[in-house]
Amino acid sequence: MAVMDFNRYKEINDQRLNYREMEDATVVSNYRNVGCGDGYRIYLKIDENRKVTDASYTTTGCGFGIVALAMATEIAKGKTIEELKNVTTEDVEKQFEFPERRKNYPESAVAALQQAIHDYETGAGVPKERRITAAKAKEILSQNGSLKGEDLSSIILEKEDLHGVDFSGANLNNAFLTNCNFAGANFEGARLRGAFLNGADLTGANFKGADLRWAKLAGAKIEGADFTDAVYDIGTRVDQKQIHIFSSMKKEGKDIYMEKHEAG
């Protein structure tokens, strides 16, 4: 049985090795671990010889996910796309050996890397014109006083204070919104399909008519929040004590959380 190196595990998590948004990435790829619901985002910078000159990631997942993605992106650096197609979970575990009960993490990290390669070769992934940063969103908010109707798809707004902000009608599909303060915010009619709101403060927020299919709200504070006619599906994740919100929501079918035309 594998014995995990706890000191190295802590070091990788403390340093957040390769954990960052990459503004000049050639491809930005989203991957969802449907087993636990965690979101992974892989950034690859690729030169004219199809060689990866830089690689990074972001994730809503736990420490094991961080280590697995850190190792996968380390492996990616300096390799060609053709070489990366042959990367396996065993290659990741040569860098860091995972306990038996955590072998799914290197498997998911490799799957996310392969998805990024596929997105690069097919021209998929998050289009450059839709790679809006937190800084850009704050600039729009400062100028307009709200983020109403804005296209914020796949944005990363972790641990931000955005209480009372108007996001009504905005596109927040696949957004990373973990641990933010959205107390009193207005998300009426917003698209939050596949978004991560886990750990967020949603106290008194308005989600009337919002699309929350496959959204993750685990650990969120929802006291006083209004979910009337918001849409959910089998992928919408909430804590057991929160399931009462479904009584005021509308359930949709069993379609996968992200339609093909929304893959970016």
Rank of each mutant, 00 (worst) to 15 (best):
Y57H: 04
G78V: 03
E107W: 06
P127M: 10
G37S: 04
A220V: 13
E11P: 11
K208E: 13
E139F: 08
G145R: 08
I156V: 15
L141K: 09
N104C: 01
T178V: 13
K260Q: 15
A135I: 10
F98M: 03
H261F: 14
V27Y: 03
I245C: 03
Q240K: 15
K128A: 15
D233Y: 11
N13C: 02
A230S: 07
A200E: 02
A205M: 06
R130P: 09
N206I: 06
G61A: 08
D161G: 07
G37R: 01
N33K: 03
Q95F: 11
T203E: 12
N104D: 07
T203Y: 12
S247D: 13
T178C: 14
N171A: 06
I140C: 01
Q242N: 06
D47E: 09
N171I: 08
E158S: 11
A70G: 01
C62H: 01
M22E: 07
E83C: 08
L17K: 06
K85W: 15
I155E: 04
L217T: 02
F64T: 03
M71W: 02
A70N: 01
A205L: 03
K128S: 14
D54C: 04
L147C: 05
V231D: 08
A215F: 03
P99C: 06
N13Q: 01
Y105F: 01
V34L: 15
E252S: 13
F246Y: 02
Q95E: 13
G61N: 03
D239G: 11
N198P: 01
S56W: 04
C36E: 07
I155M: 01
F98R: 05
R101I: 12
A134D: 12
C62M: 02
V110Y: 00
F176C: 06
G204R: 09
R213C: 06
R102M: 08
I140Y: 12
H163W: 14
H244T: 13
K221M: 10
E160Q: 15
Y9E: 00
Y31M: 03
K45H: 10
G63E: 00
R8P: 09
A170R: 02
Y57P: 01
G253E: 11
F196T: 14
R102G: 08
S146H: 10
M4E: 08
A137C: 07
I42G: 01
A70S: 04
F176V: 03
D14T: 15
E97C: 13
C180S: 14
V92L: 05
V165S: 11
E160I: 04
K208W: 11
F196Y: 12
L177S: 05
A218K: 15
N174F: 11
R102S: 05
S248Y: 09
A112N: 01
A112P: 02
V110R: 00
N179H: 12
